[in-house]
């Protein structure tokens, strides 16, 4: 019998394959290692990220689901809640008590109730509605608050880049 973390990841993978949420694809990079996943997230409609397809990487800890996975976009991103290196900073990815930004309530924190699907859906809604109090990318947060037009322009450039369309 495989370990419990592996069994749960396999169950989640099965669930995501049979019943994929709209606009999200996720699964192990290599089915021999279920602790490293890749995900493709489509930008939510009606936002500046609309149309983009953003690849990301999910690394699961050995004690998943007791500890949350880490998520990192592998494409260029410009967003208040995403670090410059692509790491995603949202409360669902933090265990209670580990609060790098000091703004999250423990109700939204990681617990075994959460799942890959919920994480990815939270990321989609994060793309739609940035939380500009989080300082993962201070420049992006500032621009989101003060110069939305410029922010949208950068977002559009990133969307084009993920689709392989040259920027005009």
């Amino acid at each position: 019998m495989a370990g419990s973390a592996l069994r749960r990841l396999m169950a989640e993978y099965k669930q995501l394959t049979l019943n994929p949420p709209e606009g999200i694809i996720a699964g192990p990079i290599n089915e021999e290692n279920f602790f490293e996943w890749e995900a493709l997230i489509t930008g939510p409609e009606g936002t500046c990220f609309e149309g983009g397809v953003f690849p990301a990487k999910l690394i699961f800890p050995p004690d998943y689901p007791l500890s949350p996975p880490k998520m990192q976009f592998t494409c260029e991103m410009f967003h208040p809640n995403i670090y410059a290196d692509g790491r995603v900073c949202i409360s669902i990815l933090h265990a209670p008590g580990d609060d790098p930004m000091g703004y999250e309530s423990s109700a939204e924190r990681w617990s075994p109730v959460q799942s890959v699907e919920k994480i990815l859906l939270s990321v989609v809604s994060m793309l739609a509605e940035p939380n500009d109090e989080s300082g993962a990318n201070v420049d992006a947060a500032k621009m989101w608050r003060e110069d939305r037009a410029e922010f949208n322009r950068i977002a559009e450039r990133i969307v084009r880049k993920t689709l392989g369309i040259p920027t005009p």
């Binding site: 495989a2 973390a5 089915e31 602790f35 050995p62």
Partner: peptide, 9 residues
């Protein structure tokens, strides 16, 4: 050996 826990095969 740690990898044994991560792979189904």
């Amino acid at each position: 050996v740690d990898y044994m826990e991560r792979s189904p095969v």
